[in-house]
Amino acid sequence: MDSARALADARTWAPHVLPQMRRLGVDSVPIALFIATFTGIVLALLSKYIFTGAVPMYFVGALVGKTIMMELGPVLTGLALAGRVGANIAAEVGTMRVTEQVDALETLAYNPNSYLVVPRVLAGVLMFPVVTALAVAIGVTAGWITAINLLDLSTLEFVKGLRLFYRFKDIWFGLLKAASFGAAVTLAGCLMGLATRGGAEGVGRNTTRAVVIGCEAILVLDAFWALVLL
């Protein structure tokens, strides 16, 4: 298939992976950390509210840790990046399409899949887990700080809860999901971009589509991995 051919053409895509990783990944860190911080705070407060009386308070650590690592970290980061990265890619590639830059690439004997799609998708697959890992770390930290300051929990108790049910799977499960979200979001951006027709309006339309498809794909994949791996 064409995508296999594109992947084999490493000479074309290899030089573009690093710049794309920086653009798609590094530049997305602030928004991801922002979201994670507030998620961590809210989760800590919420678990205190849920557990009041019935459950030992150190369960706050367990709930914050598990939910952020396995679900909220990857999914919220993914959704935020679907907006940021998906829109960015679709608008860029779409503009190239309607200004005939994609045609120009082809006449210069480049395969647009090798040149445009492969480096972006690879960058997404590699960088979404990295950004997610940072978000998880910050989210848990925010939960911990909230717990010891506002919930009169000690660090010891929080960590006890955090370690109580922890399994290594919690980590790789979250990061694997993040990688699949990265593939889905960047692929949606590239394909919608390449399918753009008809000027600025078309670019706007397909950019929106790319974001919507990216978000939907994240939710579907999220359920898929839960069904298959849990």
Binding site: T99, E100, D103, A104, A109, N111
Partner: peptide, 17 residues
Amino acid sequence: SLLRAGIGYVFQFAALF
């Protein structure tokens, strides 16, 4: 690809990257 490498195309609106 080989054929295209032997043909230069000047686009109506330049289509520069």
